[in-house]
């Protein structure tokens, strides 16, 4: 057995972890279906998938029951998310919505081409799912129509609906932010693409007022636009944690299980002791 010097090992812990893991899979462009009225995977789609890839250990540890993509277009993103999770989380269920029937059909085809099953629904944002999936979505991904356009183009028929974002590109985004609040589970994560013109820091402020933490997970400038992926999660209020401690009495494990950060440390500790 070869011995590596400790200094070398501490320098590259990340790389080591990646090598022992199998190469993460995402959707293959040549297997993505297309239709003249459906937005093809582009820089924004690639950025979103890159953000998911960069956060994949968090996503896997989340062991999500339900994932949802709002505005699935070609299906490139939800299929990639499903492939990222498929190995460790084979029971995760994937839902996708689009206002465009052609996009819904294309997504179904793209996911099937990759051996993935995704439940696709034609609806505006997630309106027909909102009542029954309240606080149930563990991972929510969205590449919204963010391009500033005249208001009357918003929600238009066909491919226009995939980009037309109204005033400052915020008309649909602002509706989606309300839906995020309704649908995201306690420990759920949201990843949303935004353009600098959409004012990402103001979006984060809106979400802060709803009790969400946020950060720019990834950003990239192309010739035409400056894009970022914003990640949102529910912040826990201190008094909420206090109440749960009281409710659970002396059950330390029960309490730890409800605190995401401590829980992940706890799990890690257990894994180390098992190996």
């Amino acid at each position: 057995m070869e011995l590596t010097s400790p200094s070398e090992e501490t320098k590259k812990p990340q790389k080591k972890a990646v090598i022992t893991e199998s190469v993460p899979k995402i959707a293959k462009i040549q297997l993505v279906s297309s239709h003249p009225e459906v937005y093809e995977p582009c820089d924004d789609s690639f950025l979103l998938v890159d953000a998911l890839l960069a956060d994949r250990l968090n996503l896997i540890n989340q062991n999500p029951k339900f994932c949802l993509e709002i505005g699935c277009g070609s299906g490139y993103v939800i299929t990639s998310l499903a492939l990222i999770l498929s190995q460790c989380n084979p029971s995760t269920q994937f839902f996708a919505t689009d206002i465009n029937l052609h996009a819904a059909q294309t997504t179904l085809q793209t996911s099937a081409n990759h051996g993935i099953h995704c439940e696709v629904v034609v609806t505006d944002i997630a309106s027909c799912l909102q009542k029954r999936l309240q606080k149930s979505i563990d991972v929510l991904v969205v590449n919204p129509p963010y391009v500033p356009t005249p208001e009357d183009e918003v929600g238009a028929v066909g491919i226009v609906s995939s980009w037309a974002g109204g005033f400052n590109g915020r008309t649909v985004i602002d509706k989606i932010l309300d839906v995020v609040d309704e649908l995201l589970s306690t420990n759920g994560l949201t990843y949303m693409v935004a353009l600098s013109e959409n004012d990402p820091s103001e979006i984060c402020q809106v979400m802060r007022e709803k009790g969400f933490g946020s950060k720019i997970a990834l950003q990239r400038s192309t010739e035409e636009e400056r894009l970022c992926v914003i990640k949102f999660w529910r912040e826990r209020e201190t008094n909420e944690v206090d109440r749960e401690i009281t409710d659970n009495g002396s059950s330390l494990n029960g309490w730890l299980g409800r605190v995401p950060f401590v829980n992940s440390l706890w799990k890690k500790g257990n894994e180390t002791s098992n190996s």
Binding site: Q93, E119, V121, S127, C128, L129, Q130, K131, R132
Partner: peptide
């Protein structure tokens, strides 16, 4: 469409209060 999805869908026509199942 799986029955899981059927179980999560409701009708959201304006004014409808009983859109499920």
């Amino acid at each position: 469409m799986r029955l899981l999805t059927h179980n999560m869908l409701s009708c959201n026509i304006k004014g409808v209060t009983n859109g499920f199942p």
